[in-house]
Simulated scan of single mutants.
Amino acid sequence: MTPKPFFLTGTAGDIFCLYFPANQPRGAFVYCPPLAEEMNRCRATVAQQARQLAALGYACLLMDPFGTGESAGELSNATWEIWQADVLLAAHWLTEQTQTPISLWGLRLGALLTASVVNQHPQQFEQLLWWQPVLDGKLFLTQYLRLRVAFLMHRDLPSETTDQMRTQLAAGATLEVAGYLLGGALAQALDCTNLRECTQLTSLPMTWLEHVSDTDRPVAPASLKVIAQLRDQRCTVTPIAFTGPPIWQLHKRDEVPQLLALTTQQFNC
């Protein structure tokens, strides 16, 4: 079906959405994207997957949270709480459209966002689909801030450490990182968010797809530890390793057919 673009009225501003409807839907997904340039790098692949899921009967709503993509606002004004509210609004809209249980689909930081939403609203969502989930917001932020470290170094500008950047952000400064303005509120929230603390994720089916260098390798040890904890919380976690280009890291568009095929296979039943 032809996807339908529209704006959903959010708590902080209009949220751009792209809706992939399904005939006689049996389920529906709200998609939460990764941060900054990772979002743009993955758009085409995500749209391909949404079409395939819609063909299987799962309507998909792809959203740009406030301050990102085509949505209103600036990233510097975005907060984790606004993004959580955006996800809940999108899920409510999708419920009205499909009258089916709503699931959440997250890529990279978007996966961590879905976890935080479900952690605050347990039993509200049907299942989770995670692509290459970020396990720890603090570690992710450190890696992201290192892009600014490299930028300053390559241009012979005064150097900064990630700790110094955190101090500036905590004091209310806005920092440009890889072409995006990052605000302190979002940075501080990332420092306090990780999957291991999402203890309210209980009795929930999860499909976890993670990139590996070759087909004989399992998902990363850090991921296996989180998966074990989630299983202790009575979640049914299905970890699936895939190979191919890590599209969220690439500056040039590429295809990841195995990721699409494995995801589609998981829901084609």
Results as ranks from 00 to 15, higher is better:
Asp216Val: 10
Gln132Trp: 14
Arg108Leu: 09
Arg148Gly: 02
Leu169Asn: 07
Val30Arg: 00
Arg26Cys: 14
His92Cys: 13
Ala12Tyr: 08
Arg166Leu: 13
Leu129Met: 00
Val30Trp: 05
Ser71Asn: 10
Gly137Met: 01
Thr95Ala: 05
Gly183Phe: 05
Ser71Leu: 06
Pro245Ser: 03
Gly13Val: 09
Pro21Ile: 10
Gly57Ser: 15
Leu94Glu: 02
Arg41Ala: 15
Leu147His: 01
Ile82Glu: 00
Asp214Thr: 14
Ala187Trp: 03
His92Asp: 14
Ala47Thr: 01
His211Ser: 05
Asp14Pro: 10
Thr162Ser: 05
Pro3Leu: 13
Val117Leu: 06
Thr2Ala: 13
Arg217His: 09
Ala54Ser: 15
Gly106Ile: 03
Pro25His: 13
Asp254Ile: 00
Trp80Tyr: 12
Gln120Tyr: 00
Leu141Ser: 06
Gln48Trp: 11
Arg231Gln: 15
Cys235Val: 09
Leu190Cys: 07
Tyr31Gln: 11
Leu169Pro: 04
Thr95Asp: 06
Glu81Arg: 14
Asp214Tyr: 15
Gly67Ile: 00
Phe29Ile: 10
Leu112Glu: 01
Arg217Val: 12
Leu94Ser: 07
Asp191Gly: 11
Gly10Leu: 12
Phe20Val: 10
Ala178Gly: 12
Ser76Trp: 08
Leu88Val: 15
Gly57Met: 11
Ala228Arg: 11
Thr167Asn: 09
Ser203His: 11
Val149Lys: 11
Ala220Gln: 12
Asn119Tyr: 06
